[in-house]
Amino acid sequence: MNRNATLFTLAALMTSVMGHAALAVGEDTSEPPKKTKTTTQCRDGKVWDAKSNRCVDAKRSDLGDDVLFDAARELAYAGQYENAIKVLGAMKEQKSARVLNYLGYANRKAGRMEVGMQYYRRALQADENYILARSYMGQALVEQGKIEEAKVQLIEIRDRGGEDTWAYRALLQSLGGVRTY
């Protein structure tokens, strides 16, 4: 397929899927995380602890991994990549695909592309079906001009049942030159 036919096909696919949901960073959702006191009041990798009604050091807190993950996702979405990395580092589940994926995302967005790619690869080693890691990796590949490799990730997402997901739509949009996340 020549370049123009490929672009036309991508444009047609984008048109068909763009109406399904708004795009946002996150766990394959169209909703961005709501801002909490973690991003509005806490600094230096601290997170809001509703029980104590204050910002706490993520490493020293008794907050569970799900609370810390949500805080890290919120920080990453807010562009506070270094703080997101600190919070992710406080989680017990260091080898899970979701943690490795967001370490990839935060590092990539902080300008450390190769470190980010290493985390995406590790996320996929932890769970080859984790399509959000495939999407972010594909977007990183687009940023690097590796379009064919990015298309491979798009096909992988589709073939793993992810065609109707944010992960698929976001990568498709990136391949169309619209935006990367």
Rank of each mutant, 00 (worst) to 15 (best):
Arg112His: 15
Gly145Arg: 03
Gln144Thr: 13
Gly111Asn: 04
Ala110His: 03
Gly111Gln: 06
Ala110Arg: 01
Ile155Gln: 14
Ser135Gln: 03
Ala140Cys: 12
Arg134Gln: 07
Asn129Pro: 06
Leu132Met: 09
Arg112Pro: 03
Leu132Pro: 13
Ser135Val: 05
Ala133Asp: 00
Ala133Thr: 01
Tyr105Trp: 12
Leu103Ser: 13
Tyr136Cys: 11
Asp127Pro: 01
Gly111Arg: 01
Gln118Thr: 14
Leu124Pro: 00
Leu141Asp: 05
Tyr105Gly: 10
Arg134Cys: 05
Leu124Ala: 01
Arg108Thr: 15
Gln139Ala: 11
Ala123Gln: 01
Glu128Gln: 12
Gln153Lys: 13
Ser135His: 05
Tyr119Ala: 11
Gln153Leu: 07
Ala123Gly: 11
Val152Pro: 10
Gly116Phe: 07
Val115Trp: 01
Gly104His: 03
Glu143Asp: 15
Ile147Gln: 14
Leu124Glu: 00
Ala140Met: 04
Arg108Phe: 13
Glu156Val: 12
Glu148Gln: 11
Gln144Pro: 06
Glu148Arg: 14
Tyr136Gln: 08
Met137Trp: 07
Lys109Glu: 15
Ala140Thr: 08
Ala106Arg: 03
Arg158Thr: 09
Glu148Lys: 12
Arg122Pro: 00
Met137Ser: 11
Gln139Ile: 04
Gln144Asp: 10
Glu128Ile: 08
Arg108Ile: 02
Ser135Trp: 02
Ala140Tyr: 03
Gly138Cys: 03
Glu149Met: 09
Ile157Val: 14
Met113Pro: 04
Arg122Ile: 00
Lys146Val: 13
Ile155Leu: 14
Gln139Glu: 13
Leu132Gln: 10
Ile155Ala: 13
Ala133Leu: 01
Leu154Thr: 04
Met117Asp: 08
Asn129Val: 05
Ile157Asn: 12
Ala140Gln: 06
Met137Glu: 13
Asn107Trp: 02
Gln153Asn: 11
Arg121Glu: 13
Arg158Cys: 10
Val152Thr: 14
Tyr136Asp: 06
Leu124His: 00
Ser135Pro: 08
Ile131Pro: 02
Leu124Gly: 02
Arg108Lys: 12
Ala133Trp: 00
Gly104Gln: 08
Gln139Cys: 12
Ile131Arg: 10
Leu103Pro: 04
Tyr130Arg: 00
Gly145Ile: 04
Val115Ala: 10
Glu114Gly: 03
Gln118Leu: 05
Leu124Arg: 00
Ala110Asp: 09
Tyr136Asn: 10
Glu149Thr: 06
Tyr130Asp: 00
Tyr119Asn: 12
Tyr119Val: 01
Ala123Ser: 09
Asp127Tyr: 05
Ala123Lys: 04
Ala106Thr: 08
Gln125Met: 05
Glu156Asp: 15
Arg112Leu: 07
Val142Tyr: 09
Val142Pro: 02
Gly104Lys: 11
Arg122Asp: 07
Ala133Tyr: 01
Ala123Ile: 02
Arg134Gly: 06
Glu148Cys: 03
Met113Lys: 14
Glu128Asn: 14
Val142Met: 01
Gln144Phe: 09
Glu128Ser: 13
Ile155Thr: 15
Glu156Tyr: 06
Asn107Met: 04
Ala106Met: 04
Tyr119Leu: 06
Ile157Lys: 09
Tyr130Glu: 00
Ala126Trp: 02
